[in-house]
Amino acid sequence: MNNEGWIKTCAVEDIDVEDVVRFDHGDRTYALYRNAKGDCFATDGHCTHEKVHLADGLVMGNLIECPKHNGRLDFTTGEAKRAPICDAIKTYPVKIDAGMLFIKVD
C-alpha cells in the first residue's frame, strides 16, 4: 500500500468482462468486478446477508448474485437489490494505472 491508501490488486485483464474475482489483503477480503463496459469496481468480499464469498457469485450487468441465497447487490453503488439481502455493501474507489487495478481502503 502506498502513502495515499491505494492497494495494488491485479491486472485489469485478470478480471474477465462481466465477472468477479476475490482479492485478499491482510485480514480483509474484497470482490473486484468488471462490467460489460469494461469498467472496474470493488466491494467488500462477503455478502451482507451471510458471510459468503461474493467472488463465487454470478455477475449480471451491474449486479452480483450471492451464490448462497440468490440475493443481489448493485456493485456500483452497494445497494441491496433483491431479498434476502437487505443491507448495502461497502464499495471502494478504484483507479487504473498502467493496466493495474488499485483500490482505496481506509
Rank of each mutant, 00 (worst) to 15 (best):
M1Y: 12
N3E: 15
G5P: 06
W6R: 00
I7Y: 04
K8I: 01
T9M: 04
C10V: 00
C10L: 07
A11W: 15
A11M: 14
V12P: 14
D14W: 03
V20D: 14
F23V: 01
H25V: 02
H25T: 04
H25E: 10
G26A: 11
G26W: 11
G26F: 09
G26V: 01
D27K: 04
A31V: 00
L32T: 05
R34L: 09
N35D: 15
G38L: 06
G38N: 10
G38W: 06
D39W: 00
C40E: 10
F41G: 14
T43W: 02
C47T: 02
T48Q: 13
V52Y: 11
H53Q: 15
H53R: 11
V59A: 14
M60Y: 13
G61W: 03
N62Y: 05
I64S: 06
E65T: 05
E65S: 10
P67Q: 02
G71N: 04
G71T: 01
G71P: 03
R72K: 09
L73A: 08
D74Q: 07
D74T: 00
T77I: 00
K81P: 13
K81C: 07
A83W: 08
K90E: 15
T91M: 03
T91L: 03
T91D: 12
Y92H: 00
P93Q: 04
K95M: 06
D97H: 05
D97I: 00
G99K: 06
M100W: 15
L101W: 01
K104F: 06
V105D: 11
